[in-house]
Design a protein around this nucleic acid. Structure first.
Lengths: 146, 146
DNA sequence: TCCTTGTCTACTATCTCTATAAACATAGTA
DNA sequence: TACTATGTTTATAGAGATAGTAGACAAGGA
């Protein structure tokens, strides 16, 4: 039931960008250093996040990445689904699945549906705005390790 | 966030054995056929389940597998943890983890801890006895597809 | 033009998943 | 005893995912 490093890095990168939302763009190098991720791997993660519409970029001198939307408009769930894939622990729970011989009679399907819903309820209801707010409410001078 | 086929087969095999709890042992071939799983793969799964203490076996002619405990004593969570591994979506949530620079300051840890707890609350509170009961309460002649 | 930055493609080592195969051990039965 | 049905163990293998690494290229500002 593990998430991958890619998703972990993606979430941390977005939180980093959310923290620096007012500051302007951040370079891949800056982001990688601040969240302690491999630079070349971060390149790919950020490109994926760009394809997903989560971040914008500016090339050339003084270029870098920035959030495409307000932190409060991006939920963790959106990112996890895009980078990691479906939340559902087993494919038969997914919408539109019709391969089982008789879905209505499979007991495990209902279990995994519940797990899927519980997980979604958590990660769909937290935005990067919420996280930044939590950090700020701790007071000045308190630095988070992302 | 997917579980593996191995876990899926393991759960289905145990439910199958729970349904036939009073009947005596079932052979690998019978179980595989009833839950529609590859025989040679089922061998490994059942062997793992035996190591985990979930099933017992009898060799030789008229041998086979049977549940090691009453169906109501085995929860889905026990099996998932043993076959699939930790429920926690990321290692820093696990008990005893001390590798993070500063656990108390990581916001994502709390999110994944919540997801982990929600999942556990579901799968730790369903036993194979519950599932068999659900099947029986549907009345005679109603066959489940496991 | 030069430097800094993002973009894109390719490559690789390692691991996991999902099986399959063959040789072997055990136990009942003819 | 010989035979057969069963579980046991170990090895192997292809496909795919994971977690990176490398290098050439494109764009934009000074």
């Amino acid at each position: 039931m593990r998430i991958t490093y890619k998703t972990d890095y993606a979430l941390k990168a977005l939180l980093d960008l959310a923290i620096h939302y007012e500051t302007g763009v951040s370079t891949i190098n800056d982001i990688s250093r601040r969240i302690d991720a491999p630079v070349k791997f971060m390149e790919q993660v950020l490109l994926d996040l760009k394809k997903g519409g989560f971040v914008g970029s500016k090339r050339g001198n003084a270029g870098g990445y920035s959030l495409a939307n307000e932190p409060s408009k991006i939920s963790l769930g959106q990112v996890v689904r895009y980078i990691e894939g479906p939340i559902e622990p087993i494919s038969c729970v997914e919408k539109g699945y019709t391969n089982c011989s008789d879905l209505s009679r499979c007991l495990f399907r209902e279990i995994w549906r519940k797990v899927s819903k519980a997980t979604s309820d958590i990660i769909d209801n937290v935005t990067f705005g919420d996280l930044v707010e939590q950090i700020n409410s701790k007071g000045e001078g308190f630095t988070y390790s992302i």
